[in-house]
Amino acid sequence: MIKALIFDFDGLVLDTETPEYQTWQSVYAEFGKTLTLENWGQIIGGTAASDFHPLTHLEELTGRSLADFGLESRVRDESMQMILAAKPRPGVLETLETAQRLGLRLAVASSSPHWWVDSHLQRLGIFHYFETVQCSEDVSRTKPEPELFLAAQTKLGVGTHEALVFEDSPNGVLAANRAGIRVVAIPNPVTQHLSFPPANLVLGEMSDLPLEQLLQKLS
């Protein structure tokens, strides 16, 4: 019986990944280069298994130092404008409300830092739904390693067989698999083009299947 839900944040609750990728794509295009999904996909959902960095990669492609162009701060500013205008992905609010009504325990497990995740959860008015928020500072290794999900599961006081993870990235699904926790994959507009490890269920959006039906399907 599923007693707890563990949510990723970036790309799953709020699509923060598409704005950043699109902004870096524009920057690459200005230098006559292309940022592929294969490269970008290495860091989506976790950085523990990758040393890819978009600015370093662009410098390698152009054969020059780009330190004086202020590209990283520009990407941060432009993508943040889009992120601040965004709302939670379809079905997120309804799922949280239903989970609360059903008495399920809720957590967030994100490879991002607390200042980022907590501030957005508060801004969106959904921080109060979660008993615990586990972020990069709380573990020694982020996704695709399982530590974040195991930490969240432990904090919620349930067994791995009693938890269910919602993820949008291959790194996140792999982390859930390694933790031995069932996982629903809900790719975002960027990650839908990537190859995913096996998931217990794949949805286009969280709104595609109401939570009570989803729980019945996975029970």
Rank of each mutant, 00 (worst) to 15 (best):
L96K: 04
H114F: 06
R89T: 04
E60R: 10
W40K: 02
G45L: 00
G91S: 03
K87V: 04
R101M: 05
S111A: 14
L84F: 04
K33G: 03
T36C: 07
P90C: 13
S65M: 13
T36V: 11
G103W: 02
R101I: 07
R74D: 05
L58I: 15
A99G: 09
S65C: 12
L58T: 08
L102M: 11
D68Y: 14
S73T: 11
I44T: 03
W40Y: 15
L37Q: 14
R89Y: 05
S73D: 13
V108E: 01
S50V: 15
G32V: 03
A99N: 04
R76P: 09
P113I: 06
T56G: 05
I83F: 04
A67D: 06
I44S: 01
D51E: 13
R89I: 03
I83N: 02
F69A: 14
E59G: 14
R105Q: 01
D51F: 15
A67N: 15
G70N: 03
N39V: 05
L93Q: 14
T56R: 12
L104N: 10
E38I: 13
R74V: 10
E97P: 01
G32W: 06
G103L: 01
V75M: 08
L55P: 06
K33H: 12
H114V: 04
E59I: 08
G32T: 03
E78G: 04
P54M: 09
D51Q: 14
S110P: 00
G91W: 10
S110K: 09
E94R: 10
D68I: 12
V75C: 02
D68L: 11
T95C: 08
H114Q: 05
L96M: 11
T95D: 01
E94L: 08
L102V: 00
S111L: 01
T98M: 00
E59H: 05
D77S: 08
P90K: 00
E97V: 05
G63E: 13
P54V: 14
S79N: 06
G32P: 10
P88I: 12
